[in-house]
Amino acid sequence: MEDVQFFIEVLVGGLLSGVMYSLVAIGFVLIYKTSGVLNFAQGALLLFAALTFVSLHERGVPFWASIGLTLVLLAILGTLIERVVLRPLVNQPPITLFLATLGLSYVIEGGAQLLWGTQVHGLDLGIDDVPFEVGGVLISSFDLFAAATAALMVALITLFFRYTRIGLAFRAVADDPFAALAVGLRLTRIWAIVWTASGVVALVAGLLWGARLGVQFSLSLVVLKALPVLVLGGFDSIAGAIIGGLLVGATEKLAEVYIGPFLGGGIESWFAYVVALAFLLVRPSGLFGQKLVERV
């Protein structure tokens, strides 16, 4: 009985931390759906957002004003990226764009730290991380808060894309950029907006992760946690990002607890990748990814 309880506790902990992965992965999906780019700079964007917020807040700017200012900066950054990086590379093979975002991540990481310094900032969102008990299973209240935030984000994103004009345009572009272009949607503006939107997602994810790990350079490495999630869920599916995140979170924690001791521990650095790979061999386009029929 205790074993079962412990198992459930590990599982729930894993699922909740998986939500944190999902949150990062959603930012990727937004950009991938509209421009077909796997945006490696998402982690750097997350670092930039969290670092900007913390630094403003530490300098005495009130909480919401800091959020607002950070959002403005993210919008400027999104527009800049579209103008300087994406637009000149339009019609290039996707892998070129991916490499460009790799360069971009270096620029943003360097820029963020040049601007705000390299020291570690603590971040207190005012949520106590006291575990509470549900039916004998300990649950972290912070994790629960993170999960609730993620759920709210997903709901907002869904509403946004279903009911706003920009959302409709976004979906049109995601379906068929050429057709969207042909009917007069302005691709460049939509891209700028989507990059801003994924910046917002990055801010939320950055705050939650920052509260966990401290706001510092290593924050941008959460991108490495999100990649297997994306591989598992498919790069173009928000539902996939969520379920992939939960799967990765759960299997990772379970493996760490139950398999880890046999391998000497520390397997979380690669375990998610192996799970994702094993899965891919069965379904090459992920859980929910669109299967592309090759045309000749």
Partner: peptide, 16 residues
């Protein structure tokens, strides 16, 4: 940090 920025920018520049 400046090196990081310049290297990253050069990557983008070369790709473009």
């Amino acid at each position: 940090m400046s090196q990081r920025i310049v290297i990253g920018a050069l990557i983008i520049l070369f790709l473009i």
